[in-house]
Amino acid sequence: MDSPIQAVRRYPSKPADVYLFATCLVDQFAPDAGLDAVRLLEREGIRVHFPQAQTCCGQPAYTSGYPDEARAVAVAQMKLFPEPWPVIVPSGSCGAMMRHHYPKLFADDPAHLPVAEELAERVFELTEFLVHVVNFQRADRGDPYTVALHTSCHARREMNAHLTGHALLAGLDQVTVVRQVREEECCGFGGTFSLKHPSISEAMVTEKVESLRATGAERVLSADCGCLFNILGRAEYLDKVAACSKPSLPGEHIASFLWRRTGGGEQ
């Protein structure tokens, strides 16, 4: 393992309260994933606080050459987490933005830097938090099933979340994870990259869809909605072109899958 973050962060004990920073994509396009993340945490006896004023982590501007706009949006988020509770983010990419890039964004801004640094310390990607802080141990309640996991680049290289994603799935007895070729390779999303360089993005996502389909897994999972929408949107498009009525590559956020497999919704 050779990643910027080597050290696994654990909390002294499982906290009673956490914040959820859902991300703009989950809020608008995948609210079920966010809701399932909340349910997973609550079932562990954790109160989840969702500041209603939250919007976006600021990454789109940060990676597009607009740091001032990114800072403005980041500052608006940084105010929302006053209590010293962990901030759980159901996205490796947005989590990494807050954990690693906020301090860089405010490196020359002494007024905001301490807040950014303090916040960064308690930002956790969801699967990271479930494995290392919650010590998630729920038993699998479903039938035998196969899945493939897309380990997004920022989740993998900045949050080590590919390890925790696989660890959670390995804990499900009846679920077999089928490894895809080049699992570590990018799906070609890259935020505005997918719009700026469509032909390269197409080449990348098409190969990712092919390698995921080739696993024969019944479902693809990811802890990042951006990548997931990219992959699923491409797969669906290809299905349409091929006039294929059954989705060749269904998929969802790992939080939803985990919630369902461990008996969520049964109570």
Binding site: V38, E202, V205
Partner: peptide, 23 residues
């Protein structure tokens, strides 16, 4: 939706946002 839908199906917002579901 521009370059996005050149090769993908469109992104459609969910009927209710997470903030609505939580509220």
């Amino acid at each position: 939706q521009g370059a996005w839908t050149g090769i993908r199906t469109p992104l459609v917002p969910a009927p209710k946002r997470l903030r609505d579901l939580l509220a």
